[in-house]
C-alpha cells in the first residue's frame, strides 16, 4: 500500500501545495523530559527539483529550491545562504517528496520498503544509501493518494514529524513561486 501510494504520488503529482506543521523532538536526555518545538507554514513543490518551504511561525524563514540553487533566507538574521542544489539535495526528505521523477530515481539515493499502517496512513520507509549522512531514516505517510506526513529521524536520534494538510496536487502555482531574489541589504553567503 505505502509503496504503491509513493509510486503513484511521484508519477502523478507533478506539483502541489499544502500547509505544514512540523514538530521536532530532541532525543530524551537522562533525567530530562524530551523537549519538542513546533513550527508551521506553507509548502509548494514542482518536479523535477523545485520546492519552497515558507516557515511562518514561530519565526519567518524561507527555503527555496529553484532548480539550481537552494536558498535559505532567515528574516530575523537578515541573512541569505545559497548552496548549489546538487551539493545538498540528494538524500534529503525534501528530495524524496519533490524532486525524484520516479521510484527508480529515488532508489538511487534511498532503500524503499513497505512499513506498517499507522494513524490511518500507509507508510514507506526510506533509508539513505549513504551511511555517513545526517539522516538515519524517513517515513513517508499517505492517506490514499495524498501525501500526508514525513517522519524524519536523524543520526543523533532527533525526530522531526512534518504533517501536511490541504495538499492539492497539480494546481497552477503563481509564477515566481520557485524564484528567489535576495532582498536589498540582506547578507548573501554563497557556499
Amino acid at each position: 500500500a505505502g509503496l504503491e501510494s509513493l509510486e503513484n504520488f511521484v508519477r502523478s503529482a507533478h506539483s502541489g501545495s499544502a500547509d505544514f506543521t512540523q514538530v521536532v523532538t530532541a532525543p530524551a536526555r537522562e533525567g530530562q523530559q524530551a523537549r519538542s518545538k513546533t513550527s508551521s507554514g506553507t509548502f509548494e513543490f514542482q518536479r523535477p527539483n523545485r520546492f519552497r518551504f515558507h516557515y511562518q511561525k514561530p519565526f519567518e524563514q524561507v527555503i527555496v529550491a529553484d532548480g539550481q540553487t537552494l536558498w535559505l533566507h532567515d528574516l530575523d538574521l537578515n541573512q541569505v545562504t545559497a548552496r548549489s542544489q546538487s551539493q545538498v539535495l540528494g538524500a534529503t526528505p525534501a528530495a524524496l517528496v519533490a524532486a525524484a521523477p520516479d521510484l527508480a530515481a529515488l532508489r538511487k539515493d534511498f532503500e524503499l520498503q513497505e512499513a506498517p499502517q499507522r494513524d490511518g496512513l500507509q507508510w514507506v520507509q526510506a533509508t539513505p544509501r549513504a551511511r555517513d549522512g545526517q539522516l538515519r531514516s524517513v517515513l513517508v505517510g499517505f492517506r490514499g493518494k495524498e501525501l500526508a506526513a514525513l517522519e524524519i529521524l536523524d543520526s543523533f536520534g532527533q525526530r522531526s514529524v512534518m504533517t501536511f494538510t490541504g495538499m492539492q496536487p497539480n494546481v497552477p502555482l503563481p509564477a515566481g513561486t520557485f524564484q528567489f531574489k535576495p532582498p536589498a541589504g540582506a547578507d548573501v553567503l554563497r557556499q
Binding site: F53, I63, D154, F156, Q158, S160
Partner: peptide
Amino acid sequence: LRLFNPLGGTAGV
C-alpha cells in the same frame, strides 16, 4: 552546543 540545519535535522553536536 547542538547545531541544526534548516529542515530540523541535527547538523552537529
